[in-house]
């Protein structure tokens, strides 16, 4: 004998965790993709420099890791959501509307993380040029790249505050 479950039933029963995990996934996904691309962009242009001047590897690495932080911010956002909905304690019990709220809360980190990581990657790649031509002004290049990070930081805070206030 089969029990008929309508979609609405399903949604009300499982929708909360689904939406929440969707939010967590989006935050980790987009921010991660963005960071991967950003770090990649810097790596490409740093390789050109290292071919000429291998001693600058350490400094170029500093520039390269800068766009990597967004991925972590996304990861943190995801983890906080997962912890809040009780995924780790195994007791996922969250109503549908809170699930939607968590999904919405994850969006700032997801979108801003994605595009700011790429933008930061480009800025840091340009910083490699500074490192090549005027190594003493290297830190200015770092600062330019860090300027971009401000918005990722703001997005992270926005997301976290929303998550913490929702659950």
């Amino acid at each position: 004998m089969d029990v008929k479950i309508t979609f609405i039933d399903f949604l009300t029963k499982f929708g909360g965790p689904i939406m929440a995990i969707l939010g967590a996934a989006l935050a980790a996904l987009f921010a991660g993709i963005g960071s991967a691309r950003g770090v990649g962009i810097v790596g490409e242009s740093a390789s050109g420099l290292i071919a000429e001047d291998p001693e600058k590897f350490g400094k170029s690495l500093i520039l390269q890791v800068l766009p990597g932080t967004q991925g972590f911010y996304g990861f943190i956002t995801a983890l906080i959501i997962l912890q809040r909905i009780g995924l780790f304690s195994g007791n996922m019990n969250i109503p549908l509307e809170k699930g939607f709220l968590l999904l919405a809360a994850a969006l700032p980190m997801a979108f801003v993380g994605y595009s700011s990581a790429i933008a930061q990657g480009k800025a840091a790649a340009a910083g490699i040029q500074i490192l090549a031509k005027k190594p003493e002004k290297f830190f200015n290049g770092v600062i330019y790249a860090v300027m971009v990070e401000t918005y990722a930081v703001i997005a992270l805070i926005t997301s976290i505050i929303m998550i913490v206030k929702v659950v």
Binding site: T69, F72, Y73, F75, I76, L79, I80, E149, T150, V153, I154, L156, I157, I160
Partner: peptide, 16 residues
């Protein structure tokens, strides 16, 4: 606000 954000980030990455 980054004082909060980075404080959170360093703690939470370790936590993860």
């Amino acid at each position: 606000a980054r004082l909060l954000a980075l404080g959170l980030a360093s703690g939470l990455i370790g936590w993860s």
